[in-house]
Amino acid sequence: MEYHVSEQAKRRNGFFEDLIDGLTRHLIANNINEPEKAAEEIALKLHEEWRGQNLNFPAKPRLYFERLKEQVISEYTGYNKTELLRRHNISESTLYKWMNQKLKEAKKREIDQNGQVMFKL
Rank of each mutant, 00 (worst) to 15 (best):
A59R: 13
N31K: 15
E34N: 15
R67E: 14
L103G: 05
N33P: 09
D18I: 07
N114E: 14
W50H: 10
I20S: 01
I73T: 02
A9H: 06
H4T: 12
N89T: 12
I73L: 12
Q8Y: 11
N89Q: 12
L23V: 02
E49A: 06
S6L: 02
E17V: 07
L19C: 04
E41W: 09
K10A: 07
L23T: 06
G52Q: 00
Y64Q: 11
E2A: 10
G115C: 12
S6C: 04
L85D: 09
R109I: 15
Q8V: 13
L95C: 12
A9V: 13
R11G: 09
N13D: 10
K120G: 09
H4Y: 15
H47N: 12
M99T: 09
T77E: 07
N31G: 08
T24I: 02
L63M: 05
E36M: 07
K97H: 06
F16E: 09
N54W: 13
N80V: 08
L46I: 02
K104S: 13
F15S: 13
M1K: 10
K45Y: 07
H4P: 06
N89G: 08
M1D: 09
K81C: 03
A59H: 10
F57N: 05
H47F: 12
L23G: 04
K69R: 14
P35K: 04
M99N: 10
V117L: 09
F119I: 15
L84T: 05
V5N: 08
Q53T: 11
Y3H: 07
A29M: 00
R12D: 11
Y64K: 11
S74M: 10
N33L: 13
L121C: 02
N114C: 05
A106E: 14
E105N: 14
V5L: 01
K102Y: 03
K37P: 04
L19K: 07
N56Y: 13
N33E: 15
L85H: 03
R51M: 08
H4A: 11
N31C: 03
